[in-house]
């Protein structure tokens, strides 16, 4: 590891790292997503063909990962705004991160069935 990439560690640095990584991943997906949606201008068949891959079990797992990245980025982004604009934000940044992680966990459990349910049915029969 090059010198100077580890700042102070702990919640502040690692949430910053995770915010960057999830942000870059989401941005790259966004390019792909605009391109696949643009196929509605080609033909209904071309669009439906590509969307069919979004419905396969493996891509469903990737979608669950995308949901995980987006939820973390969204919740932690609100925490960053609170740190910047709320006078007590910096003092409670750790507590706010653990609150973010708790809400993230609950939402990820909630997304389990809607996002992955159809993949489980496809793999193991309905």
């Amino acid at each position: 590891m090059p010198a100077g990439t580890l700042y102070r560690g702990r919640e502040g640095m690692w949430s910053w790292v995770a915010h960057r990584v999830t942000g870059v991943l989401i941005f790259f997906f966004l390019f792909v997503h605009v391109l696949d949606t643009a196929l509605v201008r080609v033909s209904p068949e071309a669009y439906d063909d590509v969307v069919a891959t979004y419905k396969t079990p493996i891509v469903a797992l990737l979608e669950y990962g995308l949901v995980a990245a987006i939820l973390f980025h969204a919740l932690n982004g609100l925490r960053v705004i609170a740190v910047d604009f709320w006078s007590k934000g910096p003092r409670y940044q750790k507590q706010m991160l653990w609150t973010v992680m708790a809400i993230w966990f609950v939402l990820m459990v909630g997304a389990l069935y809607p996002v992955l349910g159809h993949a489980v049915r496809a793999l193991f029969g309905s």
Binding site: D48, V51, Y54, E63, P114, V115, G117, H118
Partner: peptide, 16 residues
């Protein structure tokens, strides 16, 4: 897109 009304299964040209 992913949760309501059947999740990703419903998406297609007609839905768009």
């Amino acid at each position: 897109q992913l949760v309501l009304d059947g999740g990703v299964s419903k998406i297609g040209f007609a839905f768009v």
